[in-house]
């Protein structure tokens, strides 16, 4: 099986976010970029499928600015990916994920790909768009929020579960297809030190974004805001407990926007 995994560099989880000088995005100065958590699961799944299906290869692809994008490609190689392709993109603040998808598709079209794996969304923009856009660009079906992915060689079908609102959906699909994986349901392996040292010298193929990556409707980041610091609780006035409950749920829903 020829497996392509798409990965992305994101700020590490402990980053203290600051607004950039132009207020359009976060300040990347001094920020440490790492392989996105969802992508770790995607790489792990690719490696597990490779190990279960003899004769398989895993090719990791990423589109983004240098050097952080090459770093996550090297991290993926250290985990066990066989080859890597880097699509260099300009260092734009908060880039449009569809443009990223077009860049990835350009590289993937040139590679054998039975299965394209992505992390469902990244910890920064959390768009969750890339897997679906890739599917459309490559003319393949895509599935998001997937857990428990297995290849049934006898039936020549990919079997997996999707976590959807209605519950857990069990699916089967022929290849090729695109899968967006849920995070951390498998247990991503840790790269060993010798592999990390070796990955520093691994070759990374570099390609330019395809010509058709530009000239499409896109979006631009205009403002990046951090929430204001805590001022102390807004105390809810009420006469009866049900009134307090109702007011709170309304605030959580409409003001705080955290109601499930």
């Amino acid at each position: 099986m020829e497996i392509v995994v798409c990965v992305k560099p994101v700020p590490e989880a402990e980053t203290r976010l600051r607004v950039a000088a132009d207020a359009r995005s976060f300040d990347a100065e001094g920020v440490k970029f790492v392989l996105a958590g969802y992508d770790e699961s995607a790489v792990e799944q690719a490696l597990l499928l490779k190990e279960a299906t003899p004769g398989s290869h895993v090719h990791v692809v990423a589109a983004g600015p240098s050097p952080r994008t090459e770093e996550v490609l090297r991290a993926s190689i250290a985990l066990g990916c066989d080859a890597a392709t880097f699509v260099e993109m300009p260092n734009a603040p908060a880039p449009d994920p569809i443009a990223t998808a077009r860049a990835l598709a350009g590289a993937i079209r040139a590679l054998p790909h039975d299965l394209v794996l992505c992390g469902k969304q990244a910890g920064d923009d959390e768009g969750g768009l890339v897997a679906a856009a890739l599917g459309e660009l490559l003319g393949l079906p895509d599935f998001g929020y997937v857990v428990d992915l297995r290849w049934d060689a006898a039936a020549a079908r990919l079997r997996f579960q999707r976590s959807a609102e209605a519950g857990q959906e069990l699916w089967e699909s022929p290849l090729p297809c695109v899968v967006g994986l849920q995070q951390a349901w498998n247990d991503p392996r840790t790269a060993k030190l010798p592999a990390i040292l070796k990955s520093r010298k691994a070759p990374i193929a570099k390609v330019a974004p395809p010509a058709d990556a530009t000239g499409h409707p896109t979006s631009h980041a205009e403002k990046f805001e951090l929430p204001p610091p805590r001022m102390g609780a807004k105390l809810i006035e009420f006469k009866t407990p049900p009134e307090a409950a109702e007011k709170l749920v309304k605030l959580l829903r409409e003001e705080a926007k955290v109601f499930p």
């Binding site: 090297r74 991290a75 840790t190 790269a191 040292l197 990955s199 520093r200």
Partner: peptide
């Protein structure tokens, strides 16, 4: 160097 950063990051993560 980027290599040293990878080593340090890996050790930090394990730690």
């Amino acid at each position: 160097t980027p290599e040293q950063e990878s080593l340090r990051d890996m050790a930090r993560k394990f730690a």
